[in-house]
């Protein structure tokens, strides 16, 4: 028996998928980019950053977690949705200490790239200037929580891909933060520079030491093309 085909529309464009696929998955296949931050291919999506929110039959839903159903009407590229996303990104910027000017992730940073894609030139909310921790104890990895956006990609990658549980969330609400193996220092963990978790961070929080700025301006991931272009090109 042939597999059931589900048809939805995204911004009026008919898109087909199969049962169990999410809106984001079918959008990607159809070359429609939905901005995202906490989503990373290979990990279980959890919809926590809310950047991929789309209107589904008039209701906001996270596209990385919402399975498709026949006849769904999805709005992605609307002013309302775009504004919601911009507000989220704005808040992420002011809640941390994101100094792109001297951050080695600049040009390769997903937060910066999504902000540029959405046309954010400066945050509209006041900067919070929080005190955040730095952990430089690991010989090969530098952890800078000033730039952490609590996407949980490191928690999932370490646990589900590397099998190590190096990172975990502690505290709640505004106090929520990434912690290292029950408050030990990074050097006390079994984290290795070859672990997949090191490449999982969308911002400049988990960094390989001593390689910053080795890629010249012009050759960084988002120097020439906006984030999402690879999806739009198919």
């Amino acid at each position: 028996m042939s597999e059931q085909i589900i048809t939805i529309t995204i911004d009026g464009q008919e898109v087909k998928g199969t049962p169990g696929q999410t809106i984001m998955e079918v959008a990607d296949s159809a070359g429609v980019y939905i901005p995202r931050l906490c989503f990373l291919k290979g990990l279980t999506p959890h919809g926590s950053c809310r950047v991929c929110v789309v209107n589904v039959n008039g209701r906001p839903q996270t596209s990385c977690t919402q399975p498709i159903a026949n006849g769904m009407v999805v709005e992605n590229d609307t002013e309302e949705i775009k504004q919601l996303r911009k507000d989220i990104i704005d808040m992420l910027f002011v809640e941390g200490n994101h100094y792109c000017q001297f951050c080695e992730k600049s040009g390769n940073c997903e937060l910066q790239a999504v902000a540029y894609r959405l046309g954010i030139t400066a945050p509209k909310y006041p900067y919070q200037f929080p005190n955040k921790e730095i952990d430089a104890t690991h010989p090969d990895i530098f952890l800078d929580l000033n730039r952490c956006i609590l996407c949980a990609r490191c928690i999932q990658t370490s646990r589900d891909v590397d099998g190590k549980t190096v990172f975990e969330f502690v505290n709640r609400g505004p106090e929520k933060k990434i912690s290292v193996n029950a408050d030990a220092k990074l050097s006390d963990t079994n984290l290795d520079v070859t672990d997949k978790v090191v490449d999982s961070c969308p911002v400049g929080s988990i960094l390989k030491k001593r390689v910053g700025f080795a890629v010249p301006i012009g050759k960084r991931i988002y120097d020439k093309e906006a984030i999402g272009s690879e999806i739009e090109k198919g």
């Binding site: 001297f102 080695e104 430089a136 030491k209 390689v211 700025f213």
Partner: peptide, 14 residues
Amino acid sequence: QGRPYWEVPVLVQR
């Protein structure tokens, strides 16, 4: 103080 050394050439030029 506290920043990684490889960041300094890019930071201090500001």
